[in-house]
Design a protein around this nucleic acid. Structure first.
Lengths: 223, 223, 223, 223
DNA sequence: GATGAATGAGATTTCATTCAT
DNA sequence: AATGAATGAAATCTCATTCAT
């Protein structure tokens, strides 16, 4: 099969997996159903993706890739704006991506859980085994830090143009924004419908508050 | 069997489950092993906890209960301190509890994922079925908002004693701190060893930054 | 507990067991349900009957006892009639008893299966073990041949009074009638409702034919 | 898998089940052991036979099928002999089949008990549920009456050739022979070893007597 | 490369039977 | 002697994953 055709089919499977995962969640999804949704057999499914985990990682990879693409586009679009504005944009974009596709946000969250569970425990070896063989695990690993780097990049630009303070480690600021975003997305997930207020709180407002905090933490003192 | 004794045994099982879950993770844990660890039979285990999921929920419940107890203790201890200080304490305590016991933090995180997956999707009913029958699911639901209420309580005290601004919804401020905490804990999980820096960032410093942001968001303007 | 009271309770349990067994059959009956029906606990049930098998044997014993009583009564009633007539009566009575209470007929049938399965097979010892400990097993064994003896008795009387041929072993004739009865009862069971014809055959007629055969086999040649 | 191969494997499993059932009896047989004997997994076993009951039904089906085949062969072989002789042959064959394989005879007996227990009782539906889903239950039902039909056929032939009386319903005569056979087989079961006399009665003689009765009942009066 | 069948591991259930109080 | 809890053995099911063709 030509590489192009193979890739096309792979994408088709990923779309099918996204559909099924979205409907019932990763744990409850059955490989059988995903295969059916993709119009292929389980064995064919396995020939493309060595395991269910790998399939999820493929989605994680897709999510990360999309996020990175958006980041690149943002950086390119924001060349005329301040580093601070661009940095804030980056956080906004992360949340937007997650909102647009909760599956992606969950894939990203699970990925974090995965790398932890494979890094610990008595049966570390056993757990890691299958994952390491996974093509996508490696591919995800290769790009997992790219989003951080892009944010750091914009923070550095902000340091240069004076919109961001220079006395705090850019990566620290990056992680601060990132964790706030993660927490916010987690809350969105829990609330189910992110358009509805939770405890009478408009979640839009909550996000705004987070970004105000971020701006406060980023901008030079006394600005 | 007296309720007290029954409860005692239930706790013993939960402890055994915690041990096994901690060692191999929830997915890899076998009911058989948990039973063995608790010194009982599989059947007895099932008579106490209807399913593996329910067992995890029991741990979630314990985690929540412990968190609530800590909150109550903190509120009681902090009666002489400002509402602001006490509120910040609450956030610190959440992170401490999660650090002390990653299993608890993961249980809490999973719970959030759970309520989302049971709140959506075409087969909502089917998914929820088993969970709803779970005793602990109901018990967790009953107390899941208590932590928020306690934080709101301290914020309200801060409003009275002038240490916290009055022009922002206390629940909004609560959720802001809560999501930051969640995000931070998630990052801790991902980093595996929270004592080690991530990307050369001292995670202690990251948390400090979050709390500074929180203080800024809480304290009255111009203080 | 006084022996009388104990015995009374035992009978109560047997009645409960009969009820449950009749409803769902021996295999599907649960000790739990029988206990409930008897208004006692499972453990109490076990204190009276060491096992489910034993309980069935108790019913078998009751069935046998009742059959024997009927036989005795018949013999007594028939003292003025010919041995042939009385013998035929015996067979009729067996079928009547089985019709009146199919549970009894099934208990008797199962008993035959039981003694076979305990008499053969690799795990003969294991199988027999529990049964041998059973009080009722011994009691049933003690009386299992009594019905045959009574039939033989009447046949012998028939030999004396000239109504039955003398050149055939009375026990052979007994078993011939007995097996025909067993087979007939089995068919009744299978037909479910013994009042309804099976394959358009009036089962009453079938029984009549069997008895005609029996008479032919019993009566002296040329009568 | 081709139907032929699938069927072949099914037969292999049935043979394994026969082996295990013969050794330890139906109740004591473990699905695990049957699977092992067949050289497959428990799950595969279940994919072929939905339940242990179904497996027994499969054996019942085989027994019936074998009996039917023997009947067909007999009918074919007996084309030159009288209908009476052939009819008697049919009864003899039933007993022979049962003697050759007690498992088959017990399967046939259990089947009768089964259709009764599934045809009665308050919880008829519940009991029947699993059984009705069973492929073999249906297949057995489809052929359960074939043996009777073949006997009737030979009786009818006997009526034509003058060897059998015409004033009695052929099906009545069939059932008479059939029930005698069933009863005899039951006694054989109970006696355990059919080569040994029971109560000093040679069971061979008993069967001979039954067949004499049958001949008397079948042959035209005055022959 | 695709397919139907099979495997293995573990979850869950059902009961007869036994223990501890 | 009675009770609630526990045991043990096996049935049954669910799925990710692998084999054989």
């Amino acid at each position: 099969m030509k590489a192009s055709k193979k890739n096309e089919k792979e994408q088709k499977i990923i779309v099918a997996a996204e559909t099924v995962f979205s409907q019932v969640g990763f744990t409850n999804a059955k490989m059988e159903d995903i295969a059916k949704e993709a119009g292929i057999t389980k064995v064919t499914l396995y020939s493309y993706f060595q395991s269910k985990d790998n399939l999820q990682l493929a989605i994680t990879h897709k999510a990360l890739t999309m996020l990175i693409a958006r980041y690149e586009q943002t950086i390119s679009n924001n060349s005329g704006r301040s580093g601070l504005d661009s940095t804030i944009d980056m956080f906004n974009i992360f949340v937007e991506v997650c909102k647009e596709n909760f599956l992606y946000s969950e894939a990203l969250m699970s990925y974090f859980a995965l790398i932890r569970s494979s890094a610990h425990g008595a049966n570390k070896e056993k757990l890691t085994e299958g994952i390491n063989e996974s093509t996508y695990f490696k591919r995800v690993q290769e790009i997992q830090n790219v989003p951080f780097k892009y944010i750091v990049k914009e923070i550095n630009r902000g340091r240069s143009d004076g919109s961001i303070k220079t006395d705090v480690d850019p990566m620290l600021l990056t992680l601060a924004g990132w964790t706030a975003s993660i927490g916010y997305v987690k809350l969105l997930s829990a609330s189910g419908d992110h358009m509805q207020p939770l405890f009478n709180v408009d979640l839009q407002l909550l996000w705004k508050l987070h970004m105000e905090n971020a701006i406060n933490a980023l901008k030079p003192v006394g600005t």
